[in-house]
Design a protein around this nucleic acid. Structure first.
Lengths: 155, 155
DNA sequence: GTTGAAAGCGTGAAATA
DNA sequence: TATTTCACGCTTTCAAC
């Protein structure tokens, strides 16, 4: 499925997604074109889903992060309400979850007032029955790399 | 703080963090060296905090995502317990939050059994008084770009 | 901000194992 | 199949403006 070479490449890309193929090639002792081909295959297979820049939300005027539990009165098994929530640009994540709530939603907004306006828009979405908002006071860890098994050194 | 040109660059990088300086330069009608310099300044100012690859957790054997609310009996104002939680590699996010719980934690693990073992390690961290785990059934939206104000066209 | 030039990189084709 | 080598064009980067 994924071999040690792939893991090694992914490990490097998790540290810096803008690393050049040539520098990756140097680090793993391969030709750049081989690295290119492996990355392309990982993209095609959907293991790599894209490349993102990590921005400082606060410095961009988005000082407030919140998690919102959303209740919904939709047909069992439907996720239509969640997909409607996901359309809003302030919404960074929507997860359909087990338990009494239906959705857990992560949002970034400039301030309390914007959060209030956003919750009103949540309320206008069909099926939404309640929201419970939890404010983030301090983000302690964010967007950590996934714990890939370490590549085994070839013996 | 951030002008329209910066916003334009960030907008492009949010879509594809591996976009070359030259292609960004073409899209915004500037010299590549000017783009390079702006990106460097955004990095130095901490607006850009890094470049990440978005991986498919399921295809890497991490089939289970969960959010865990963690209660802690530490001194008011301390976040030591949160920083200890953040050390674990399975933990992708730790937020110190308002409300009855102290922390909200996001984790990726291979399966139920690994989740159980992880929760045991949570319990071994000093101060942790309880955990409430919510399993993700379907991730509907993840790692969406931040809603930057659209750049105003120069008039 | 721009340009220009040198060094480095991306990428496909062909060769190799 | 997966990889290296090679060659071309493009990109990065810095210095000078």
């Amino acid at each position: 499925m994924i071999d040690d070479t792939d893991r090694h490449i992914l490990h490097i890309l998790q540290e810096n997604a803008r690393a050049s193929n040539a520098s990756i090639a140097r680090q793993i002792g391969m030709a750049p074109s081989a690295v290119l081909e492996r990355i392309r295959k990982l993209e095609k297979r959907g293991v790599i889903q894209g490349y993102e820049v990590k921005l400082n939300a606060k410095k961009l005027g988005l000082a407030l992060t919140a998690f919102i539990r959303v209740g919904s009165e939709e047909r069992v098994g439907s996720t239509q309400t969640g997909r409607n929530l996901a359309q809003l640009p302030e919404v960074q994540e929507v997860h359909h979850v087990a338990g009494p709530d239906c959705y857990l939603v992560k949002v970034h907004v400039p301030d309390n007032e914007s959060l209030g306006q956003l919750l009103q828009r949540f309320g206008a979405i069909e099926g939404v029955s309640y929201t419970h908002t939890v404010l983030v006071l301090t983000p302690i860890k964010e967007s950590a790399p996934l714990p890939l098994p370490e590549p085994h050194p070839a013996s």
